[in-house]
Write a protein that binds this DNA or RNA. Structure first.
Lengths: 346, 346
DNA sequence: TTGTACGCGTTATCAA
DNA sequence: TTGATAACGCGTACAA
């Protein structure tokens, strides 16, 4: 039976009758080591089955090449696209990702942030939970100047950067589009206005109404978690209204609740978009499957993840001081589909 | 300006006039330390802003409380559900996840496996890439007895465990169901048969045909990556056939390509299920949105992730030796919806 | 170009 | 119940 001890640089050193220091330098391609010994070291490492011990190295070098990623939920189309983009970018630069989810609870967010700090991630990428109210739990990072990048669900902070889309503008455009289609009574299915994404979408919606001289009614702002069930519930709510009081359009802050609201209304005999027009947000795969296809706002999660990670890593490497800016705003596009095109009866 | 040095257990020790060893024990809730000193240590730690350094600890204790997760792609509905289940289970036991994607390439899989080994993950959870042919790249893990759990896309290995569903059985049931609906010419949209999930689904399909005395034709086995585009292409392929040669049912190995195939055929004037019936696999959100709703196979990614992690952690903790078994098969259910119910014209 | 010697922050061993 | 001390594996001044 083979000994179960790790193969270390000392084993390589002994094997080649050189010092461990030289081995260490050789493995790190330090040019101070002669080409020849570097080659011999590499060969010996392979032969002995050496695998570097990352955290012994981290302990000395104070850098882990690991980034922490903290998100509300892992299982949404948008978030998994973001993660895919992040992983790809991180991998390209030799970084790894530790990923955790807060499950929309500030308390979990704090616990996970602490763990990541204890694992000494080189940087943190975070999208805030539904009910996070302060950034106190990130103080350890701020205090030790570990860079924090906020994305999507952000919170302003002096020494951090945010990667976002212009939610206000996108919502303004969606709402204006619905108004241009002749809609006058536009309901908004929104999320918790504590989060910028939902507050900004709501604000954009309201401003568009205002700019078109349309009144806003508090009862048309239906706040929920924007789940499938919430979409269905919103439909019931609409069905419960007297016919004359019903909205003639719905702008939902995500596609899921838009689609489930549509399906329930269709089942109740409504014709979309003629009886009621629809627009969502996210360009989720279901938006291209529902009939009629859902008008929505498209923005790339992969790009958001890529940009967030690249900025973080550039900052870490000192390549650029992009943290001198406060936020990066990515492009978001209104995608007009049949669900909001009045008179285009199919 | 504060010194930028870490707060260590030595600082706490000095502060309390006790030894670092005691502090270490106290922080780890070692019962050998008196309740009182444990309390004083905790207070001092808080006061001094101490944050434990995980990898200094790992270096000594030879355990990282970190699990590696290696998947083909992060951004699919199924995979993100699995990850959500894994993260939840891991977090509950105080473990963290390092997540990487192979992007369906064996080469990336190897690189990522090496990195994870170097980061000394306590265990590895892996779903194989599209073209992985051997497990050579996992040898470092096997050699050092670091447990490996395969899930979904697995490969038999003596000292590892697999968490799967019975793909063969599910596909057999789907196909039998289509046959019972009167379908006789059933096409199969499949994936690379190098992977168990696609091979088993294909085998189950073929066996069902055989058991019902239906001939199998090689041209009805359409292999692709099962993307949206592949689904659309399959539809073109069907449309290119002479009407009399066309299949009367399609069983796709995932919902995405089933749905896109359906949409293209619907656009071409086909009525589903009367002209051609459909069944998919995965119970993806789009399967409940397409009209008619798609018959599919439902199995919980979250459960698969949960089971995989729990087994791994139990094994690590020595709580159970579940690795004595070779594989765990989770429930998968045939969900019959309108897309395969002939004669149920709506 | 290479070697010596030490320290990173923690835990394990042994002794008290 | 606590303390002194030696590791864990690696990187880096400094010296040679």
């Amino acid at each position: 039976m083979a000994e179960n001890r790790e193969v270390t640089i000392y084993d390589i050193a002994k094997h080649l009758n050189i010092s461990a220091a030289t081995v260490s330098r050789g493995l790190n391609n330090n040019p101070a080591v002669s080409k020849n010994t570097r080659k011999r070291i590499a060969e010996a490492a392979l032969k002995l089955g050496y695998q570097s011990n990352t955290f012994a190295s981290s302990l000395r070098s104070k850098s882990t090449h690991t980034l922490g990623v903290l998100v509300p939920r892992l299982n949404s189309h948008f978030m998994s696209s973001v993660l895919a983009g992040m992983e790809k970018a991180a991998n390209k630069h030799g970084y790894n990702l530790i990923i955790a989810q807060s499950l929309e609870e500030a308390q979990n967010e704090k616990l996970n942030a602490d763990t990541m700090f204890n694992k000494r991630v080189d940087g943190l990428l975070i999208s805030l939970s539904y009910d996070t109210r302060t950034l106190d739990h990130l103080e350890p990072f701020f205090k030790r100047n570990i860079p924090v990048v906020f994305f999507d669900r952000v919170h302003p902070h002096a020494s951090s950067i945010s990667v976002v889309i212009n939610n206000y503008d996108a919502a303004y455009k969606v709402t204006s589009h619905l108004i241009e289609q002749g809609c006058r009574r536009i309901m908004h299915l929104g999320g918790n206005v504590l989060r910028n994404v939902y507050k900004d979408r709501f604000d954009g919606y309201r401003q568009a109404l205002k700019d078109h001289d349309l009144p806003f009614q508090e009862k048309w702002h239906w706040v929920s978690a924007l789940s499938e069930e919430d979409g269905t519930a919103a439909a019931s709510h609409i069905l419960d209204m007297p016919a004359s009081k019903r909205p003639d359009a719905v702008f939902s802050a995500n596609d899921t609740s838009a689609v489930y609201c549509m399906m329930a209304l269709k089942a109740a005999g409504f014709h979309i978009p003629d009886d009621i027009a629809f627009a969502g947000f996210n360009n989720d795969p279901i938006s291209k499957v529902i009939e009629p296809n859902l008008t929505t706002v498209d923005y790339s999660g992969e790009t958001m993840g890529d940009i967030a990670v690249n900025n973080l890593i550039n900052h870490l490497k000192g390549v650029s001081n992009l943290f001198s800016t406060n936020s990066i705003t990515l492009r978001a596009n209104l995608i007009i589909r049949a669900s909001s095109l009045k008179g285009s009866r199919q």
